[in-house]
Design a protein around this nucleic acid. Structure first.
Length: 468
RNA sequence: GUCCCGUUCAUCUAGAGGCCUAGGAUCCCAGCCUUUCACGCUGGUUACAGGGGUUCGACUCCCCUACGGGACGCCA
């Protein structure tokens, strides 16, 4: 049988990292086995579903490169099918109409809780043979005894007694089918072979299996993924900053870095940390997925992001960093200079935002020096050294790395000081204290005019400080 | 409360009874490299939740306790 998996988010918010990892694992399982991956939007909750959320989810999937072979399907477009199944269940006596009010149900729950029991429907309408005319919900007639056993591909065998389950509502008063019914119908109709989803659905699985059995359908395999917790070990929520996948895009992360980070959250392949998409596809295996929840760790994500920024094609990084440069007020294009700047700076940044920030000095003058760097560099004879080396640089006929290097070396020789006496103030004067590569490369990329202008500015700053 | 699930360094994890004096990675610290900051390299600190079994032997198997999470909706 062909492997087919799906990702089935409900559009009530953006695609968050937990959902993204569920999608990734599901996608990986399909790709690994040469199967298909389906995207299905579970929008049966008319109240909370929004088009904006659908768009956000689609956008997130697209950015991560999680492509789907079928879909997106929308459950709201399949109501006729669900209702046909529900009607069939009623007809066969496997489901029944119920007129219990929300108030009665609420009261029942409170009583049961007070009696330290698990709240569940008492079957009040089970045998009342209610007709279709008065307002009602439809409930599934869950087996009263026996137990449901299934072998979770991640957790292993799980068993639940039917006595723990109650007659769940499969159609609301307004005629809309509910999750547990729609998910079963869809997974069956779409030929899903492995249902891979968050472990908050473990408790729903036995009910769904009973539904499969009542309908005489083949039961798919299930794999329940542990959840992802925030940095602090608490459930992921808004206060954890970047929970939306697209927030990571905006914060300057590369999709391959996020994917690599996510795949290692709950899954491993020996000691390997860096995985290309091809590698994770080749080795991903549900049986190697952890059972315990894991905490999101931004430090490690940053490390991976830096790794990918460092090893990606500089031209591509230039493309990606450009919007972040623009955001800093720098107007430029992806040209030779930007690519050279990226190559010069990329091992010093863990995000594209950072890369833009530490590269700004190649394009624009700055008002402030890094206090610590300036204090260290602008002292003693710094002004004199700067004056001397500036004169040398001004005389250069050819503004290239070699001659620049030579000019600085000459200056050092003539002044008869250590290299750092000249190089340090010069670097800080030109960069303001930003991380930067070899001095000659830095000066070359900044350009002669800007270098001389900034050295001048630094000399003035030093003399001013001396006067104070 | 009831049911289901989980528990190895701060964090992600390796570990399928002896290979474990518990390995790797991130973080942190120190050193080297060095004209800054990084990168890189070397080294270091830190973990099997607790208690009982089973076994010649348990991080690995079983039970109990503790802690954590999830579910218990006319949400998904």
């Amino acid at each position: 049988m062909t492997i087919k998996t799906r990702f089935a988010p409900s559009p009530t918010g953006y695609l968050h990292v937990g959902g993204a990892r569920t999608a990734l694992f599901s996608w990986l399982h399909a790709r690994r086995h040469g199967g298909d991956f389906v995207l299905r939007i579970e929008d049966t909750d008319l109240e909370r579903s929004t088009q904006a959320s659908v768009d956000a989810i689609l956008q997130g999937m697209d950015w991560l490169g999680l492509d789907y072979d079928e879909g997106p399907f929308y459950q709201t477009e399949r109501f006729d099918r669900y209702n046909a199944v529900i009607d069939q269940l009623i007809e066969q006596g496997l489901a029944y109409r119920c007129t219990c009010s929300k108030e009665r149900l609420q009261q029942l729950r409170e009583q049961q809780m007070a009696a330290k029991q698990k709240p569940r429907y008492d079957g009040h309408c089970r045998d009342r043979e209610i007709g279709p005319d008065e307002p009602h919900v439809v409930r599934f007639r869950n087996p009263l005894d026996g137990e449901v056993v299934f072998n979770d591909l991640v957790r292993g065998p799980i068993r639940v007694a039917n006595q723990e389950l109650d007659d769940l509502i499969i159609r609301r008063t307004d005629g809309a089918p509910t999750y547990n019914l729609t998910v079963v119908v869809d997974d069956h109709d779409m030929g899903i072979t492995q249902v891979i989803r968050g472990d908050d659905h473990i408790n729903n699985t036995p009910r769904q299996i009973n539904l499969y059995q009542a309908l005489g359908w083949e039961i798919p395999e299930f794999a329940h993924l542990p959840m992802i917790l925030g940095d602090d070990g608490a459930r992921l929520s808004k206060r954890h900053g970047a929970v939306s996948v697209m927030q990571y895009f905006e914060d300057g992360y590369l999709p391959e870095a996020l994917l690599n980070y996510l795949v290692r959250l709950g899954w491993s392949h020996g000691d390997q940390e860096i995985f290309s998409l091809a590698e994770m596809t080749e080795w991903f295996d549900l049986s190697a997925v952890n059972k315990a929840p894991s905490s999101f760790n931004t430090d490690k994500l940053n490390w991976l992001n830096q790794h990918y920024i460092k090893s990606a094609d500089p031209a591509r990084i230039a493309e990606l960093v450009l919007p972040h440069m623009n955001a800093l007020g720098i107007q430029t294009n992806v040209d030779d200079k930007l690519i050279a700047v990226v190559e010069a700076q990329r091992e010093r940044a863990s995000t594209l935002v950072e890369l833009a920030e530490i590269s700004a000095f190649y394009y624009q003058d700055f008002a402030e020096y890094d206090a610590k760097a300036a204090k260290k560099a602008f002292k003693g004879d710094a002004a004199k050294c700067l004056q001397h080396v500036a004169a040398k640089l001004a005389e250069l006929s050819d503004w290239q790395r070699e001659p620049i290097h030579q000019a600085v070396a000459d200056s050092v020789g003539e002044l008869d000081v250590g290299f750092g006496k000249v190089a340090m103030p010069l670097r800080i004067a030109v960069t303001g204290g930003s991380p930067s590569p070899d001095l000659d490369l830095t000066l070359y990329l900044v350009g002669r005019e800007a270098v001389l202008r900034r050295v001048d500015q630094a000399i003035r700053k030093i003399s001013q400080a001396t006067l104070d």
